[in-house]
Design a binder for these strands. Structure first.
Lengths: 285, 285
DNA sequence: GTTCCGCATGAATCGATAG
DNA sequence: ACTATCGATTCATGCGGAA
């Protein structure tokens, strides 16, 4: 089955109107934060942010399936010595639009921006707000289970090297039978705190968030061939993650430069996947 | 110099009125969280939480010194499938009272409450809201510095084993000159994410926050002989932390049972400190 | 082929300086 | 007085070149 990756260049609130309702399974996005990204996106002032965002979130509510989820990555900055309150106000306004504020995940950034000030420490976390249209949303918790604390130590060490190699080399599940049994027994469900690094100084694609972030939510809230939407695509991290996990995706960005870049990268990745599948088929012939 | 630990039994909004203004350097507290079940003992319903808390925060604003800080540990519950908004509303109302919302620290709980739900992961974080009366508050950042990321690996490994042994064996500072130089150079300021475990097996009372939590803020926002206030003392963790760090403290709790318990424990601890100081004086005679 | 060291690079924030 | 711009400060990460 084919995976579609569609990229549209333009303003999110315009483009979204051409997308039919109830067709998206997951929205993952990181819009420009207030007063930030002035050079690329013009920078939306904090006191205008809500009126700028609400028309977009209204369209997002329309295009999302009743079983779908909206994950919004955002963080308020310091203005005049205080944390700005626009994110909290946005949550309350979105609830008035009909969104359910289901959960707030924390992205704990391992490598946050450095600096020192007399009255403040470095900011090492961002919000990942989960909104839903209904309480009956899809969630595939097993897809993001994590190894338990001593999993590697207590279990894998007992395997002989040949066992490990043999089991890992099996095709299909990616793990041999023995290990997969242990997997289910010694895997735990994660929490609502994600501990990831930002991808810094990666010349090829300078992404706002690391690929693992959208990947995690895509695995958690969608299954294969579902549709993922990112209305502020940027360099396209969400779309690459979706493509890699065999989900259809729609990306929107106002900057033509980003759209071109994303289109070319997607083409490369698709080709790369195709080649790998060829090799794979050849090797297993 | 003597350390005072005062414990008052009664309703916080009443007791606080008898405390004179501008005399507290730090307020650290974890009030009872809102509870949707109105009939449970002491539980404040979520929709009444703000009107219950605002008279207290008003008094807290009065008793706090202009250079002081208020750290509020709180987390909104899930009500009817959604995160409740009363914490956000509380922040906005407190700002109207005159509080500055300076920062939001995250307490990432290493061992959070177990459980499994079909539509939600375990909640592993709580808010630590920092409020101030003015922008010129005291902050002693050096008191809470932490070792840098790869401190042990990248620096200490370059020392010969004999160097390490010789330097470690020196009395006094605990480190030899060389290492202590590196210490200061290889310590970094922390971030606004705290990664602590909850205290699980505390004999006398239900698991609240770990001693390190109030200790961290006491070290950060006060100096010796300053005054720390906890208007919802509970079993007295904040007061013990203050006493241990040689800060005066005031505790308030509505349950006589807790007040008695805290009073006895404080007495024990003070005695213990006294004995240690005697031993110390004797040993160094 | 490793391992190691140096280096640029960030969704930052404050305080001073300039219009 | 109030707003824009700039320099200083700071640290985890991954890349590239060197040993």
């Amino acid at each position: 089955m084919e995976i579609n990756t569609d990229i549209f260049c333009g303003d999110a609130s315009d483009i979204l109107q051409d997308i039919e309702e109830n067709c998206v399974d997951l929205i993952v996005t990181s819009p420009p934060y207030a007063d930030q990204r002035k050079d690329t996106y013009g920078g939306i002032p904090a006191d205008k942010y809500i009126e700028w965002f609400l028309p977009i979130s209204k369209e997002l509510l329309r295009v999302l399936k009743p079983t779908g989820t909206f994950v919004l990555n955002i963080k308020e900055r310091v203005i005049n010595g205080e944390r700005s309150t626009y994110v909290m106000e946005l949550i309350m306004e979105m609830r008035k639009q009909g969104w359910l504020w289901t959960e707030e995940f924390i992205w704990h950034k391992k490598n946050c921006y450095p600096g020192k000030w007399p009255n403040r420490f470095r900011d090492a976390w961002e919000r990942l707000l989960q909104f839903n249209k209904t309480k009956q949303f899809n969630m595939y918790q097993e897809a993001v289970m994590v190894p338990m604390g001593n999993w590697a130590k207590t279990r894998l060490k007992n395997l002989s090297e040949t066992d490990k190699i043999r089991d890992n080399s099996r095709v299909g599940s990616g793990f041999g039978k023995n290990i997969s049994n242990w997997l289910t027994r010694d895997m735990a469900y994660p929490t609502n705190v994600l501990h990831l690094s930002t991808e810094c100084s990666n010349r090829s694609h300078s992404a706002t968030f690391p690929m693992e972030l959208p990947s995690w939510f895509i695995k958690l809230f969608t299954k294969e061939f579902d549709t993922v939407l990112d209305p502020f695509m940027g360099s396209g991290t969400t779309l690459f993650a979706a493509e890699k996990l065999r989900r259809n995706s729609i990306g929107i960005d106002i900057l033509d430069e980003y759209c071109q870049m994303a289109k070319e990268e997607i083409k490369e990745k698709e080709l790369c996947h195709f080649e790998k599948e060829e090799e794979y088929a050849f090797a297993n012939k």
